[in-house]
Design a protein around this nucleic acid. Structure first.
Length: 259
DNA sequence: ATGGTAGCGGTGCTA
């Protein structure tokens, strides 16, 4: 089962680029972030015509997550528990029926800038809620995959120029501590364990020639429960996608599980 | 310290 995550930064602007990549990468499951459209405006027919099951949790203009799957889905749930007043669409879960059942979550963790401030407080509170949800799901002892745009640079080697990020919400110590608390629950950072070299990035800013200078960061992650990590066969980052016409600022990151 | 680019939506916000 090949599971990918891709922050597409606007589904309407990225439909063509996404279809091209789907054809060549042939994932079974794709977790999307920043679709920036309500459910009714997601171009689902285009994907359904190509055999995809489409589950969205959309929002107008901002945020919005989705799961595309060639395999059957069941028990789809929307929203991160823990705050009834939170109306931002950043979390969707589904159970994928492959040779084994895998619970997959597409998540878009808050950016948190500027920090300090209310947006940073929201980020940290959101991460605490995610930790609680992960704890709940771990009880099942099933394969779990939490993939998406975490908006966290885990370590200095995950940034080309770490000094540029010292005061940024993506790299502040509290953000990184919250990320490592997730790992310490028993989750595995799939890319870290399979390709731990410096210089492996998933995002290059649109500004200041970040792509041309390879001034990237690694913020799109696959975190695997122990039962999913035992099934991990391969990971990859499709970096070339960033150099194409009308690219997202993120590229697809994928993991293959024996499931 | 500033401004640079992109998407959405039709202005300014988010990143």
């Amino acid at each position: 089962m090949k599971i990918a995550t891709f922050n597409i930064n606007g589904i309407l602007a990225r439909t063509e680029a996404l279809l091209t990549w789907l054809d060549e990468a042939s994932p079974d499951v794709v977790c999307l972030q920043e679709i920036k459209k309500v459910d009714a405006e997601f171009p689902r027919a285009v994907f359904e015509a190509r055999g995809w099951t489409v589950q969205t949790h959309g929002q107008k203009s901002f945020n919005g997550v989705a799961i595309l799957s060639k395999l059957p889905l069941e028990d789809v749930t929307r929203g991160l528990p823990g705050d009834e007043s939170d109306d931002q669409a950043r979390w969707i879960e589904a159970t994928v029926l492959g040779r084994r059942k895998v619970r997959v979550c597409s998540l878009y963790l808050p950016n948190g800038n500027p920090a300090p401030g209310p947006k940073y407080d929201y980020k940290l509170a959101w991460m605490a809620r995610m930790e609680a949800r992960v704890r709940q799901l771990l009880v099942s002892e099933q394969p779990l995959v939490f993939c998406g745009d975490y908006n966290v640079i885990p370590q200095a080697e995950d940034a080309a120029n770490p000094k540029d990020w010292l005061k940024d919400a993506l790299f502040l110590p509290e953000s990184r501590r919250a990320f490592f608390r997730l790992l310490n629950l028993g989750l595995t950072d799939a890319v870290r364990v399979r390709d731990g070299r410096p210089g492996v990035y998933s995002y290059w800013d649109f500004q200041r020639g970040a792509w041309e200078r390879n001034n990237g960061i690694r913020i799109d992650h696959h975190l695997l429960s122990p039962q999913a990590a035992d099934l991990l066969q391969e990971i990859g980052i499709d970096k070339a996608v960033r150099g194409r016409d009308k690219p997202s600022d993120h590229v697809p990151v994928w993991a293959v599980l024996d499931a």
